[in-house]
Design a protein around this nucleic acid. Structure first.
Lengths: 189, 189
DNA sequence: TCTTGTAGAGAATCATTGTTCTTGGAAATA
DNA sequence: TATTTCCAAGAACAATGATTCTCTACAAGA
């Protein structure tokens, strides 16, 4: 008997990623989020509860559908080539808009422990994945055996966040690609 | 005859840096800004006009009083040692709170062209200063002559922004120090 | 076709927050 | 000490934005 919903939750979450990327959390207003997703207020609050809880769901969706695809390169653990593929995709991903997760950390990290946690998990994961790839690369003799794996991984992790910021300011991503070469080149044998 | 103002503009701007760092731009509310600076509304709007124009002034003050001191290391142009001193001070500066300029870029960069300009100028300046130091270092034979100066400078610039993000999440800064060593170590002869 | 439960659109509400206004009083000079 | 500015504190106002409510209409089963 009931009427079926016209909206698609996945679609709503995807649209919201764009809105939050453009305006930040506090800068994004419900009217725009709802309108861009072709949603309706009533449904929104029934489905998501509040703007804040909605953000958490958007972030989860963002990680699941976007970041995970990119990090998968690192987790395939093929050595240096995995790291290279990762950066290629990442640069393309953040091009002109940055990274939602990083933006949330800089805007809300101080006040919101949940966001801070999400950020920390993300960094840890990157760190661990880089270590895996570097160890593999060392075993495959793709990189010098005297490279310090732990600190190189830390360095790469910082570097990823730097990209997320630079991509907002840089029109094109040629510079980021060049910088990546400078980073990975010297590691290789 | 007139009564003299009790507030000190420099002090107001400095306090505001903290507030904006903690809550972001939209998250920072006038009540807290005014209260923390021991200021009063009337004086505030007479002095600064609006919250937005105030932010620009705070950012300028932040650069003048904080970032410039740190970047000065790079502009003293002593080769590799300048870069090392820069990172030492920078890590200490962003420890536990990040960088206001970077936070503004990630929160407002998409909507506010003025913020984007400020961000771009800052990145350009870092880039140019790194190039200067690296060239000097090469002339002084502190780094290998086959290091690609331009792309290494790009890399260092990205790296700085990465620190600004990581510092918000990382409790201590030991990790950042280790990562810096990993970065600069291999450059040296 | 009639009934009914729920979706959709947007009006209404309530809270928050940026900005302006009012008022009392303090400092500096004559 | 009287007078004159104009500062300090915060009340008042207006705008914005998150959330709730209302009402219409549609889809699915009886």
């Amino acid at each position: 008997m009931p009427r079926k919903a016209l909206y698609n939750v996945e679609e709503v979450l995807s649209q919201a990623v764009s809105v939050f990327l453009e305006h930040g959390y506090h800068g994004a207003i419900m009217d725009e989020i709802i309108a861009r997703a072709e949603f309706n207020r009533r449904g929104f609050y029934l489905e998501f509860g509040s703007k804040q809880r909605f953000l958490y769901m958007v972030l989860e969706h963002y990680q699941k559908t976007q970041l995970n695809k990119i990090i998968a390169h690192l987790e395939s653990n093929q050595g240096l080539i995995s790291i290279q593929s990762f950066f290629e995709d990442y640069v393309e991903h953040v091009k002109g808009k940055g990274c939602l997760l990083i933006n949330c950390v800089t805007e809300l990290g101080f006040d919101d422990p949940e966001i801070r946690d999400i950020g920390r998990h993300y960094l840890d994961r990157l760190q661990i994945d880089f270590i895996g790839c570097l160890e593999k690369a060392q075993r495959m003799e793709q990189i010098h055996h005297n490279v310090n794996i732990e600190s190189t991984a830390l360095q790469l992790t910082s570097y990823v966040q730097g990209f997320a910021v630079n991509a907002i300011l840089a029109g094109d991503t040629d510079e980021l690609k060049i910088a990546t070469q400078a980073l990975l080149g010297p590691l290789a044998i």
